[in-house]
Write a protein that binds this DNA or RNA. Structure first.
Lengths: 124, 124
DNA sequence: TTGTAAATTTGTAATCATATCAAATCGTAT
DNA sequence: ATACGATTTGATATGATTACAAATTTACAA
């Protein structure tokens, strides 16, 4: 949990394992899977299904959306302060269905990669 | 493509395979994976990352959101006519980043399963 | 302290969706 | 009928996630 709260990189299980394994040498991936599952069930963390490869986790459970760059894989937070419409997701209703979770996921090419792309094409 | 357009169930590769294998006995899953990937790249179909188990596909590429029931697995379409705010997602901008895809995914328990749940608890 | 049972953590092995890739098949123009 | 490029196939590999039993740790009573 401390790692999630201090690293706002939306890490995968793999990334958490690699980061913590040095100081907690006995740590196993199973424990990370179990613990994150518990966090998500209890609402202490959010699970992001923004790509099909693997799941990402977020210790920030405030209302916000995400943008993932298809090129570099970076996941950016999008807060209501920058995009007011996001505030409306928190209270979305859908008929008589019981909505428990809302995810707004954007994908594309981030500003940084766009610039690199331009450089590359100019070099040719 | 025909299957996708006539079965609005947001099928997985597995489901498409099971459905078509009888009439196209030589069909392989690899072909389904390749073809769907092509459809998604060309914008002819949408890929839904609404759950972590596997990917679902949608032949309807009009602006709409999805609700998936965690209990029965059914994926419901949510059109702007029922939820006008969805229309605003289609044109979301995020700074200087190049947004290519937007997914609004809701999860929870659907109306049908809510009723079954109530029945079950009354029986106890 | 010590013993003990419950809770947690671990590591190995299984599972399952998806990717890889060479061989087989098909379509089409000669 | 032939040849060649494009498509499809199926066997195999990969990699994330789960299952589960054994090992370890914790909490607490004696």
């Amino acid at each position: 949990m401390k790692y999630l709260l201090t690293h706002k990189t939306h890490p995968t299980v793999e990334e958490i394992y690699d980061a913590l394994h040095d100081e907690i040498t006995t740590l196993s991936k199973t424990t990370i899977y179990n613990t994150l599952k518990l966090f998500v069930e209890k609402g202490a963390a959010a699970q992001l299904n923004i790509e099909d490869k693997c799941v990402h986790f977020d210790g920030d459970i405030s209302t916000h959306a995400h943008f993932m760059c298809q090129r570099c894989g970076t996941i950016y937070d999008i807060y209501p302060s920058k995009m007011p419409i996001i505030e409306d997701f928190a209270s979305l209703q859908f008929g008589a269905h019981n909505v428990q979770n809302v995810q707004l996921n954007l994908t594309g090419i981030c500003e940084k990669c766009m610039k690199n792309k331009n450089k590359e094409s100019k070099q040719k």
